Simulated scan of single mutants.
Amino acid sequence: MRVFIKWCGLPWCMFAGSWLFEGLEVVKYVRDATPVAPPEPIVELGNVSGDVLRQLLSRLRQLISLASAVAWVKRVGLRVFIHGSAMPDPVNDFIKAALAGGADGVLIDDFISINSDLIDVIRVNQKVGDNSVNYIVMNPDNPYQQSVRAYGVIIKDVVIDTDWLLRVRDRLRSIYGSREFLVMLDNSSLRREIIDRLQDVVDGIVITEVPSLVSLDFDDYRAFNVFRCVNCYIDFETEGEMRKCPRCGNRLRPVIKHWDKFMVIEPRVLRLKANDEIRYMRLGTPKVINY
């Protein structure tokens, strides 16, 4: 049985969630922090029941959506944090998905408790000495009352308007001397056109809801091996192995293939792998050739 990306709100999705395959009969699969273009497969499974498959697809949709949103924002050069309230249980699954997209950290406040040695956890509005804080969260119509220096200012209830954002950014930087200007975005705002508009105005975003960017489907077909040429930006679908691009001779990067041994990538290296893959991604969908 082949599970594949049916739709993604972006030209490509960043895969996350291979650890959910543990205990299943895995024929071939995509490793975490690997970009996948719809309708490419993400896993081929054998002897899986309908109930298990439905639960698997439901969890994968959330994890891939979060990793994809993070990766796209990183792709355009912005910093990305996840607000702790956006991470339902099991929290570690969503932390690993955030890392697979290249997230910079998790922000928490007095009402949220997350402890993790996998990702940087930063408490907002907390003094760190000498009347300074790491990050301040505020509504621009109700500025922070205390006189502090802040590394970064995070705006909630943001207006997606370039002129408005520039005025707010410049005013808050003059008050707090902050180096970073970030905005909070919910599910409705995590869209490509909005991110593209923000990239020259803000330094980063804070995701406050797990987005819904991906739909998955399955069928009874076998999954082809898929190899991507980062020079031609072509994905070759083939039943066999390919090492070099038949067009330009450059090395191919595997998207999905039969691995000798099922292996979940160590969470501490997920962000490094994501950042490496994002360097090769483009703003459009790769061309797919059955070879």
Rank of each mutant, 00 (worst) to 15 (best):
F81M: 11
R173L: 05
I256P: 00
Y151C: 02
R59G: 03
R197M: 14
R243V: 05
N187Y: 02
N187E: 15
V159E: 13
I42P: 00
R31S: 11
W19H: 15
A69M: 11
A100H: 11
R123I: 03
M242T: 03
D93K: 03
N142R: 15
G177W: 01
M138S: 04
Y29L: 09
K156W: 00
L63A: 01
T162N: 07
L56F: 14
I114P: 10
L172M: 13
I114E: 05
V159T: 14
L78F: 03
A274S: 10
R251V: 12
L252R: 07
S188I: 11
R268D: 13
Y176P: 00
Q55P: 00
R75N: 12
V230W: 11
C8Y: 10
A33W: 10
V76L: 02
R167S: 04
T238M: 04
A67S: 15
K96N: 12
T208Y: 07
R191N: 12
S132R: 01
P41V: 08
V73D: 08
V70K: 10
S113W: 05
L185D: 06
L216R: 05
Q62M: 14
D217G: 02
K273G: 01
Q145M: 08
D130T: 05
V80Q: 02
W72M: 09
I289N: 04
C13D: 04
L56Y: 07
V137P: 01
L272F: 09
D104Q: 10
D141Y: 12
Y291W: 11
V3P: 01
V230P: 00
I205K: 03
V201Y: 00
S85F: 06
P35Q: 07
E241I: 08
V137S: 02
N139E: 13
Q55H: 14
D276K: 14
I234E: 09
S215G: 01
E44P: 00
N187L: 12
M184Q: 13
S113C: 02
R228N: 12
I112K: 04
L56H: 07
G9L: 06
S116P: 07
P211C: 12
S18K: 05
V255E: 03
D32G: 02
V106E: 09
Y176W: 08
I122A: 06
S189R: 14
G84P: 08
L198F: 00
Q62S: 15
A71L: 10
V148Y: 01
K74N: 04
L99G: 13
S65Q: 11
V80W: 03
G101F: 08
L24D: 07
P140T: 00
E22I: 08
G240A: 05
S147H: 08
V121Y: 09
L213Y: 12
E241A: 06
Q146V: 06
R173Y: 01
E180S: 07
P90M: 11
N142S: 14
F218R: 10
F218E: 11
H258L: 13
D109G: 02
D196A: 10
K96T: 04
L63E: 01
